[in-house]
Simulated scan of single mutants.
Amino acid sequence: MRKSKFTDSQIMAMLKQAKSGIPIQDICRDNGVSTAMFYRWRSKYGGMDTSMVKRLKELERENALLKKMYAEEKLKNEIVTDALEKKW
């Protein structure tokens, strides 16, 4: 997954500016962000604070690691069952 050039606190600051009434186009232009990215952040992080965003990212990393581990173990299991099924 690609690393964002914006920190969690910067993203949250942009979302708070939008809640305070500053036009979204102005926020995006000042920070060099597309409006599509801003709306994506708003749908993903809306209503969260910075600590919750950090926890979410930590859980996403852990989930990706667990999925990778599961895929590796499943592959090993398939190799073993294929080897045992063959008649020598």
Rank of each mutant, 00 (worst) to 15 (best):
M1W: 00
M1E: 06
M1R: 02
S4W: 01
S4D: 03
K5W: 02
T7H: 01
S9Y: 03
S9R: 01
S9G: 02
Q10M: 12
I11C: 08
M12N: 08
A13S: 13
M14V: 12
L15E: 08
L15C: 11
K16M: 08
Q17I: 06
S20G: 04
S20R: 04
I24E: 08
I24N: 05
I24D: 06
C28Q: 00
R29G: 07
N31Q: 14
G32A: 07
V33M: 04
V33A: 04
V33F: 01
V33C: 03
T35N: 03
A36N: 14
A36M: 13
F38D: 00
Y39N: 15
Y39I: 13
R40F: 11
R42A: 15
S43I: 04
S43P: 05
G46M: 08
G47A: 12
M48S: 08
D49K: 05
D49H: 09
T50R: 00
S51C: 14
S51E: 14
M52C: 10
M52F: 07
V53Y: 05
K54M: 01
L56T: 09
K57E: 08
L59N: 06
N63L: 10
N63Y: 06
A64W: 00
A64Q: 01
A64R: 00
A64K: 00
L66S: 06
L66V: 10
K68R: 07
A71S: 04
A71P: 01
E72Q: 13
E72G: 08
E72S: 11
E72F: 06
E72V: 10
E73L: 13
E73T: 06
K74M: 07
N77V: 00
N77D: 00
E78L: 04
I79L: 14
I79R: 07
L84M: 02
K87R: 12
K87Y: 09
W88P: 15
W88G: 13
W88Q: 07
